[in-house]
């Protein structure tokens, strides 16, 4: 018993760098082994997919890239899968960003998803990248009354009036759906508050896992669906792959689910061991 207590005492005082090392190994090992997992879609994710699935061809969908490099592993797969799905359904995709770092991310989707998978889709006719504008909620408020006063050009500096798909866009109400992929404020929450609720525009999207729980209260009345974190992205990817198998090559979140799962188990193990150590040493 004395030995046990000493052992647990030592364990509870272990140098945190050992914990760091264990986390690094649990994340790296499944990645190196390249294990692929599937994901069972949660109802909120399924709802996003089904709602888009029901959109008629030609529907106008705004997708806002409200994140930056720090959350790319969670957010980029969501944006890529959504754009792939929307273009597969022949919807018109309007990309923009409320975050200054979002521009590079929409560029990534165009270069890695749109151009290779949809060579026949034409820029300005089937999809457009409006880019970033400053203002945050002020920008959303402005777009609610006038899109073209703010976006006089697209991201590349071409006149907005020169694009056919912009001819019937005056305000946010002209969009059939708004999707926000976000990792903070301004993001999906602000799109719900300043656009969805105000103009009765269907809003949904994907957020980082940190942000997810605080968005649940908007479901289903104010937000028709939600992808929460990497798991949400993986679930959406599996739905898209099921419907459009050629998306399989673009899957990114699904590839990360194995290390993610192992890391979760490691964290749970840490909590359990930490608690055992606490109770064992407290007795003395």
């Amino acid at each position: 018993m004395k030995f046990d207590t000493t052992f647990w005492m030592k364990l509870s005082q272990i140098d945190r760098r050992w914990i760091f090392l264990v986390i690094a190994i649990t994340v790296a090992l499944p990645m190196v082994l390249g294990i692929d997992f599937t994901a069972v879609p949660a109802p909120m994710v399924e709802k996003v997919f089904q709602t888009i699935q029901r959109l008629p061809a030609g529907s106008k969908v705004l997708i806002s890239y409200d994140y930056g490099p720090s959350t790319v592993p969670e957010n980029q797969p969501m944006a890529d899968a959504l754009v792939f799905h929307l273009l597969s359904k022949d919807c018109k995709v309007y990309m923009m960003a409320v975050w200054a770092t979002g521009e590079r991310q929409s560029q990534y989707t165009i270069d890695h998803i749109v151009k290779p998978s949809f060579p026949n889709k034409e820029y300005g006719v089937d999809y457009i990248d409006l880019g970033f504008k400053a203002g945050g909620t002020g920008l959303i408020n402005m777009l609610f009354t006038s899109v073209k006063r703010m976006y006089t050009t697209d991201r590349t500096g071409n006149d907005i009036q020169s694009f056919p798909m912009m001819s019937d866009i005056e305000t946010l109400k002209n969009f059939d759906m708004i999707l926000s992929i976000s990792s903070g404020a301004p993001g999906l929450k602000e799109w719900i508050q300043f656009a969805g609720d105000r103009g009765n525009i269907p809003v949904a999207g994907g957020v980082t896992a940190v942000q997810a729980t605080e968005l649940f209260p908007y479901y289903p009345r104010q937000m028709f669906g939600l992808m929460a974190g990497l798991q949400g992205a993986a679930e959406y990817e599996s739905l898209v792959i099921h419907m459009y198998p050629k998306f399989f090559q673009h899957r990114s979140a699904l590839r990360k689910m194995a290390p993610q799962t192992v890391a979760h188990l490691a964290i749970i193990a840490f909590v359990i061991i930490g608690n055992i150590a606490y109770f064992m040493t407290r007795k003395k």
């Binding site: 509870s12 272990i14 760091f20 986390i23 994340v27 964290i267 840490f270």
Partner: peptide, 16 residues
């Protein structure tokens, strides 16, 4: 933060 959250899980989350 992944490393620090793991460390916090080990040291701070106690069922007290």
């Amino acid at each position: 933060l992944a490393f620090f959250v793991a460390s916090a899980a080990f040291r701070a989350f106690r069922a007290k």
